[in-house]
Amino acid sequence: MRRFEFAVNREHARAVNEIVADMRRLGALAIGAAVLLGLGTGYLIWLNHPWAYLLAVAFALGAVTALWVGLWTPRRSSIDKLYADGELVPAVISETHPSGVVLLALVDVAKPEATDPRYALVIRKVRDLPGHQKRAGERVPSVAVRTDRAPRQVGERWQSVSAMPIAWGTRDDAVIERARAAISEVEWRLLTDNLALADKVRRSSAKRLLLDPHQLPGDLGA
Protein backbone atom coordinates (compact mmCIF):
# COMPACT_ATOMS: atom_id res chain seq x y z
CA MET A 1 0.00 0.00 0.00
CA ARG A 2 1.38 3.38 -1.01
CA ARG A 3 1.19 5.83 1.87
CA PHE A 4 2.15 9.49 1.96
CA GLU A 5 3.56 11.12 5.08
CA PHE A 6 3.22 14.83 5.82
CA ALA A 7 2.47 17.12 8.73
CA VAL A 8 -1.30 17.57 8.84
CA ASN A 9 -2.45 21.13 9.48
CA ARG A 10 -5.31 20.34 11.86
CA GLU A 11 -6.75 23.85 11.93
CA HIS A 12 -6.90 23.94 8.14
CA ALA A 13 -8.31 20.40 7.95
CA ARG A 14 -11.07 21.11 10.47
CA ALA A 15 -12.10 24.10 8.37
CA VAL A 16 -12.17 22.46 4.91
CA ASN A 17 -12.07 18.66 5.24
CA GLU A 18 -15.54 17.53 4.16
CA ILE A 19 -15.02 13.83 4.88
CA VAL A 20 -14.22 14.47 8.53
CA ALA A 21 -17.28 16.70 8.83
CA ASP A 22 -19.45 14.05 7.14
CA MET A 23 -18.19 11.28 9.42
CA ARG A 24 -18.79 13.31 12.56
CA ARG A 25 -22.29 14.18 11.35
CA LEU A 26 -22.92 10.50 10.69
CA GLY A 27 -21.76 9.61 14.20
CA ALA A 28 -24.13 12.12 15.78
CA LEU A 29 -27.07 10.89 13.69
CA ALA A 30 -26.27 7.27 14.55
CA ILE A 31 -26.24 8.00 18.30
CA GLY A 32 -29.58 9.78 17.96
CA ALA A 33 -31.02 6.83 16.05
CA ALA A 34 -29.71 4.39 18.68
CA VAL A 35 -31.47 6.35 21.44
CA LEU A 36 -34.78 6.43 19.54
CA LEU A 37 -34.59 2.74 18.67
CA GLY A 38 -33.72 1.91 22.27
CA LEU A 39 -36.76 3.84 23.51
CA GLY A 40 -38.89 2.08 20.92
CA THR A 41 -37.60 -1.29 22.10
CA GLY A 42 -38.52 -0.49 25.68
CA TYR A 43 -42.00 0.66 24.69
CA LEU A 44 -42.67 -2.48 22.64
CA ILE A 45 -41.58 -4.70 25.53
CA TRP A 46 -43.86 -2.70 27.85
CA LEU A 47 -46.83 -3.45 25.56
CA ASN A 48 -46.37 -7.14 26.41
CA HIS A 49 -47.86 -8.53 23.18
CA PRO A 50 -46.40 -11.39 21.08
CA TRP A 51 -46.17 -9.22 17.96
CA ALA A 52 -44.58 -6.43 20.00
CA TYR A 53 -41.75 -8.75 21.11
CA LEU A 54 -40.96 -9.57 17.48
CA LEU A 55 -40.74 -5.87 16.64
CA ALA A 56 -38.72 -5.26 19.79
CA VAL A 57 -36.07 -7.71 18.58
CA ALA A 58 -35.81 -5.84 15.26
CA PHE A 59 -35.65 -2.48 17.05
CA ALA A 60 -32.98 -3.79 19.42
CA LEU A 61 -30.81 -5.03 16.57
CA GLY A 62 -31.16 -1.68 14.85
CA ALA A 63 -30.21 0.11 18.08
CA VAL A 64 -27.08 -2.02 18.49
CA THR A 65 -26.00 -1.39 14.91
CA ALA A 66 -26.63 2.36 15.19
CA LEU A 67 -24.76 2.50 18.49
CA TRP A 68 -21.80 0.67 16.94
CA VAL A 69 -21.70 3.17 14.07
CA GLY A 70 -22.00 6.09 16.49
CA LEU A 71 -19.13 4.89 18.69
CA TRP A 72 -16.92 3.68 15.85
CA THR A 73 -17.22 6.76 13.61
CA PRO A 74 -15.48 9.26 15.95
CA ARG A 75 -12.45 6.98 16.15
CA ARG A 76 -12.32 6.77 12.37
CA SER A 77 -12.76 10.51 11.88
CA SER A 78 -9.40 11.47 13.41
CA ILE A 79 -7.79 13.68 10.76
CA ASP A 80 -4.26 12.41 11.38
CA LYS A 81 -5.38 8.77 11.37
CA LEU A 82 -7.30 9.11 8.11
CA TYR A 83 -4.27 10.53 6.33
CA ALA A 84 -1.80 8.14 7.98
CA ASP A 85 -3.83 5.00 7.23
CA GLY A 86 -5.09 5.98 3.78
CA GLU A 87 -3.44 4.88 0.55
CA LEU A 88 -2.20 7.64 -1.75
CA VAL A 89 -4.39 7.60 -4.87
CA PRO A 90 -4.81 9.78 -7.96
CA ALA A 91 -7.92 11.90 -8.53
CA VAL A 92 -8.70 14.44 -11.23
CA ILE A 93 -11.40 17.05 -11.60
CA SER A 94 -13.95 15.70 -14.06
CA GLU A 95 -16.54 18.50 -13.83
CA THR A 96 -16.81 21.99 -12.45
CA HIS A 97 -19.95 23.64 -11.08
CA PRO A 98 -20.69 26.95 -9.36
CA SER A 99 -21.14 25.02 -6.10
CA GLY A 100 -17.93 22.97 -6.41
CA VAL A 101 -16.21 20.30 -8.49
CA VAL A 102 -16.50 16.55 -9.09
CA LEU A 103 -13.46 14.36 -8.49
CA LEU A 104 -12.86 11.11 -10.37
CA ALA A 105 -10.44 8.85 -8.48
CA LEU A 106 -8.74 5.51 -9.09
CA VAL A 107 -8.95 3.35 -5.95
CA ASP A 108 -8.28 -0.28 -5.06
CA VAL A 109 -11.53 -1.41 -3.42
CA ALA A 110 -10.23 -4.86 -2.42
CA LYS A 111 -9.73 -5.55 1.29
CA PRO A 112 -6.28 -6.55 2.59
CA GLU A 113 -7.24 -10.24 2.77
CA ALA A 114 -8.20 -10.32 -0.93
CA THR A 115 -5.79 -12.21 -3.18
CA ASP A 116 -5.64 -9.53 -5.88
CA PRO A 117 -6.29 -5.79 -6.13
CA ARG A 118 -9.58 -4.65 -7.64
CA TYR A 119 -9.41 -1.18 -9.11
CA ALA A 120 -12.45 1.01 -9.56
CA LEU A 121 -13.30 4.54 -10.59
CA VAL A 122 -15.08 6.45 -7.82
CA ILE A 123 -16.43 9.97 -7.71
CA ARG A 124 -16.93 12.58 -5.03
CA LYS A 125 -18.44 16.04 -5.27
CA VAL A 126 -16.57 18.59 -3.18
CA ARG A 127 -17.43 22.17 -2.34
CA ASP A 128 -13.95 23.57 -1.74
CA LEU A 129 -10.56 22.53 -3.07
CA PRO A 130 -7.82 24.90 -1.84
CA GLY A 131 -4.43 24.64 -3.47
CA HIS A 132 -5.86 23.58 -6.84
CA GLN A 133 -7.18 25.23 -9.97
CA LYS A 134 -10.84 24.39 -10.48
CA ARG A 135 -10.58 23.11 -14.03
CA ALA A 136 -11.28 19.77 -15.71
CA GLY A 137 -8.23 17.52 -15.70
CA GLU A 138 -6.59 19.14 -12.66
CA ARG A 139 -4.57 16.50 -10.81
CA VAL A 140 -5.62 16.18 -7.18
CA PRO A 141 -3.50 13.74 -5.13
CA SER A 142 -5.67 12.17 -2.45
CA VAL A 143 -5.84 9.34 0.06
CA ALA A 144 -8.43 6.58 -0.07
CA VAL A 145 -10.92 6.41 2.80
CA ARG A 146 -12.37 2.90 2.91
CA THR A 147 -15.11 1.85 5.33
CA ASP A 148 -17.77 -0.78 5.94
CA ARG A 149 -21.23 0.31 7.05
CA ALA A 150 -21.87 -2.78 9.19
CA PRO A 151 -20.21 -4.14 12.36
CA ARG A 152 -19.16 -7.34 10.59
CA GLN A 153 -17.09 -7.25 7.44
CA VAL A 154 -18.70 -9.04 4.49
CA GLY A 155 -16.98 -9.93 1.22
CA GLU A 156 -13.59 -8.99 -0.18
CA ARG A 157 -14.45 -5.42 -1.19
CA TRP A 158 -15.01 -2.32 0.90
CA GLN A 159 -18.63 -1.18 0.99
CA SER A 160 -17.78 2.53 0.92
CA VAL A 161 -14.74 4.11 -0.73
CA SER A 162 -13.98 7.80 -1.19
CA ALA A 163 -11.08 10.08 -2.04
CA MET A 164 -9.84 12.68 0.44
CA PRO A 165 -7.60 15.35 -1.16
CA ILE A 166 -4.18 15.99 0.36
CA ALA A 167 -5.08 19.67 -0.02
CA TRP A 168 -7.69 19.23 2.73
CA GLY A 169 -4.84 18.51 5.15
CA THR A 170 -2.25 21.13 4.28
CA ARG A 171 -1.84 24.65 2.90
CA ASP A 172 1.68 23.86 1.66
CA ASP A 173 1.76 23.72 -2.15
CA ALA A 174 5.10 21.88 -2.00
CA VAL A 175 3.46 19.00 -0.10
CA ILE A 176 0.70 18.75 -2.70
CA GLU A 177 3.26 18.74 -5.51
CA ARG A 178 5.31 16.04 -3.74
CA ALA A 179 2.21 13.87 -3.42
CA ARG A 180 1.36 14.45 -7.08
CA ALA A 181 4.86 13.35 -8.12
CA ALA A 182 4.63 10.19 -5.98
CA ILE A 183 1.82 8.88 -8.20
CA SER A 184 2.86 7.31 -11.50
CA GLU A 185 2.16 8.99 -14.80
CA VAL A 186 0.41 5.79 -15.92
CA GLU A 187 -2.24 6.26 -13.23
CA TRP A 188 -2.76 9.93 -14.01
CA ARG A 189 -3.08 9.17 -17.72
CA LEU A 190 -5.57 6.36 -17.03
CA LEU A 191 -7.84 8.78 -15.20
CA THR A 192 -7.49 11.53 -17.80
CA ASP A 193 -8.33 9.09 -20.58
CA ASN A 194 -11.49 8.00 -18.74
CA LEU A 195 -12.94 11.37 -17.73
CA ALA A 196 -15.96 10.63 -19.90
CA LEU A 197 -16.87 7.73 -17.59
CA ALA A 198 -17.54 10.05 -14.65
CA ASP A 199 -21.20 10.39 -15.58
CA LYS A 200 -21.56 6.58 -15.74
CA VAL A 201 -19.97 6.28 -12.30
CA ARG A 202 -22.36 8.89 -10.90
CA ARG A 203 -25.39 6.99 -12.21
CA SER A 204 -24.26 3.70 -10.63
CA SER A 205 -25.88 2.77 -7.31
CA ALA A 206 -22.53 2.29 -5.56
CA LYS A 207 -21.02 5.44 -7.11
CA ARG A 208 -18.12 3.39 -8.46
CA LEU A 209 -17.23 1.49 -11.61
CA LEU A 210 -15.11 -1.63 -11.43
CA LEU A 211 -12.39 -1.79 -14.10
CA ASP A 212 -11.44 -4.91 -16.02
CA PRO A 213 -8.03 -5.92 -14.61
CA HIS A 214 -7.02 -7.35 -17.99
CA GLN A 215 -7.42 -3.94 -19.61
CA LEU A 216 -5.38 -1.99 -17.05
CA PRO A 217 -1.90 -0.79 -18.00
CA GLY A 218 1.43 -1.77 -16.51
CA ASP A 219 1.60 -2.95 -12.90
CA LEU A 220 -2.11 -2.25 -12.37
CA GLY A 221 -3.22 -4.98 -14.74
CA ALA A 222 -3.67 -8.73 -14.21
Rank of each mutant, 00 (worst) to 15 (best):
R118F: 10
V107D: 07
T147G: 02
L103N: 05
A110N: 08
D108C: 09
A105L: 11
A114Y: 09
L103D: 10
E113R: 14
V101Q: 12
V107N: 10
R146A: 14
V145H: 13
V122H: 02
L106I: 14
R127Y: 04
D116C: 03
R118S: 15
K125R: 11
D116R: 13
V122G: 02
E138L: 00
Q133W: 04
W158R: 05
Q153V: 11
P112W: 13
A114E: 08
D128P: 00
D116F: 08
R152N: 06
E138Y: 03
R149L: 15
V143P: 00
K134N: 03
G131W: 00
E156S: 11
R152M: 09
T115F: 09
R124L: 03
D108H: 09
Q159K: 13
D108Y: 13
V126M: 15
D108G: 07
P117T: 07
A144K: 07
V140F: 06
K111S: 12
S142K: 05
T115P: 08
R124I: 01
A105H: 08
R157V: 09
Q153F: 04
P130E: 01
W158T: 02
V107H: 10
R127A: 07
D108W: 09
V154M: 12
V126E: 12
G100P: 12
R146C: 14
P130D: 02
G100S: 14
L104T: 09
A120I: 02
